[in-house]
Nucleic acid binder design. Structure first.
Lengths: 231, 231
DNA sequence: TCTCATAATTAGTGTAGACTAATTCCTGGC
DNA sequence: GCCAGGAATTAGTCTACACTAATTATGAGA
């Protein structure tokens, strides 16, 4: 018998899945993810990233332009979106059904997303009623791999007078997340922008429908990603 | 700065956790688990087991008597029971809350048990009301690491006339599990032994309280582990 | 256009854990 | 008491993935 050919379609390892997710997030804005940014996001050394990048481009999951950066291929993008779906459904399930708090689910989901089966994810999705957004307001990709690309503005950049729906909170920092929750600033809330101080000053908003005012400093206002409400 | 000493208490790896569980199961009857039995249970080669055994005994999780076998130390036993608690709570949670069927949970729990946090396990245990038995009727160790050691007889060995509670089903084979479920033979049911044919023949039982009869061949009767009911 | 700081890559190691092939130990049967 | 066959172990490889140290490419400013 021959010495067993390598499996042409091995399942992805944990590491590979993490790299793909990181690259997805980093290249969602600009076209390329830089080696050093990937290294920082995953807390590994840049040479480790170079090594993994080589392996991933050999297996066709990413496109590598030396000294420039990497991009996902459509195959890589599919795999990344699958992980993101898993992550977001897990976060939602844990908060809704097991009383996890908004700030504490991330680490748990981060480990589970590599271990759950597709079947379990779909059962959770059913139990949740096929949700479209996770607890942070981020859109959940469909099982087929489609994801809604929302046009979001940071609160810090929204025009005074605009009516907005808070859609995403752009941080995983537990302290900031808790603070936002205390202030009633969770995804889904409606608000209007009532004022902004000059020279990078704070933004004042009014919650809808209560009318309660909130003053949000620039740093935090940049984390609150909102969608403008038509009419 | 010094070249960073090795972490004296590294978290256990997936493999290590699997070996400890296997050794626990294999040594629960006789005192020692044999290399080849561990290899068969984990589907790895005997030399792989030898290698792992060396590492595990160096870290104090097992006791190795060369050419004899291995036993868990109290530290190893604690770690093994922790995994078994995780596994059994996961199986129960998946069947109760996510509509998994009795035969299909094992593989899912097998992967998840390595990824969940202690916190999640305890939340699931709470959601289940601090259960004592898993869907197969196996006792769930406590968080402190205690486990009930039941005195169980295989149905095949029970004396005619005995009144029994079915407590465990000693297989993970999905087809057999499904068959037992169809026959109403699930953990918790009560039954009396009405007859046994000689020469390793089948055992006839009556379900309690319905009185429905069942005839169980020897092979299957050995898998049905029962506890004798007093009085 | 040249230079230099920074980013990226290569070179070389280490560890966990699997494998096959070769060897050694134990024990049951004669 | 010896010996064969099976169980266990050692020897030697391989892969994935991390690391540090050394090297090279890139692009911004003088």
């Amino acid at each position: 018998m021959q010495p067993a050919l390598r499996d042409p379609n091995p399942p992805l390892t944990r590491s590979v899945e993490d790299y793909l997710k990181a690259i997805y997030h980093l290249s969602s804005q600009g076209g390329f993810a830089a080696t050093s940014d990937i290294a920082a996001m995953l807390e590994v050394s840049p040479p480790s990233v170079s090594g993994m990048v080589k392996r991933l481009s050999e297996t066709g999951l990413i496109e590598h332009v030396p000294y420039r950066g990497v991009q996902l291929t459509s195959q890589g993008r599919r795999a990344a979106l699958r992980m993101i779906r898993r992550h977001r459904i897990l976060e939602l399930y844990l908060t809704q059904h097991l009383a996890y708090d908004w700030g504490g689910v991330h680490a748990e989901a981060e480990r589970l997303e590599h271990a759950v089966s597709d079947e379990l994810i779909e059962r959770m999705a059913s139990a949740l009623g096929q949700p479209q957004y996770d607890p942070h307001g981020d859109p959940i990709p469909t099982a087929a791999g489609d994801i809604e690309e929302a046009e979001l503005v940071a609160l810090a950049d929204a025009r005074v007078g605009a009516k907005l729906e808070l859609r995403q909170v752009g941080t995983q920092d537990a302290a900031r997340l808790r603070y936002f929750a205390e202030q009633g600033l969770t995804p889904g809330v409606l608000l209007t922008v009532s004022d902004r101080q000059p020279f990078n000053g704070p933004t004042t908003i009014a919650l809808v429908p209560s009318g309660d005012p909130r003053v949000v400093g620039r740093e935090l206002a940049q984390l609150l990603l909102c969608q403008e409400i038509g009419s």
